[in-house]
């Protein structure tokens, strides 16, 4: 199986976030650099949900310290983290 590239992962994460946390919002407004944690879109419960989704969807296992704002604050950062793990 070919590992998904970073853009595919970013798309998947964006779909998940729009579906789970931002129903009815304009998808164009959620970009790869939109702050998630610092803007209150991802809180502890949301982060755990996203982590579970990532594990189920791509089989990437995150460490606890990777829930940090440094990795989780934007879709771009999350996609980069997962992409690096899948390489």
């Amino acid at each position: 199986m070919v590992a998904p590239n970073q853009d595919e992962i970013a798309r998947g994460i964006k779909e998940f976030i729009l579906r789970e946390f931002l129903p009815g919002e304009n998808p164009d407004e959620l970009t790869a650099t939109t702050p998630l944690v610092t803007a209150g879109i991802l809180d502890s419960v949301g982060t755990l949900k996203l982590v579970m989704y990532i594990e189920e969807k791509w089989g990437a296992r995150l460490s606890a310290h990777e829930t940090d704002v440094e990795y989780m604050n934007t879709i771009g950062n999350i996609a980069k983290l997962i992409s690096n793990k899948l390489k």
Binding site: P35, T38, G40, E70, N73
Partner: peptide, 14 residues
């Protein structure tokens, strides 16, 4: 209101 968060991460566009 959102928290005043000054840490945007290494690649923070802000």
């Amino acid at each position: 209101s959102q928290r005043e968060w000054t840490y945007q991460g290494a690649a923070g566009k802000g």
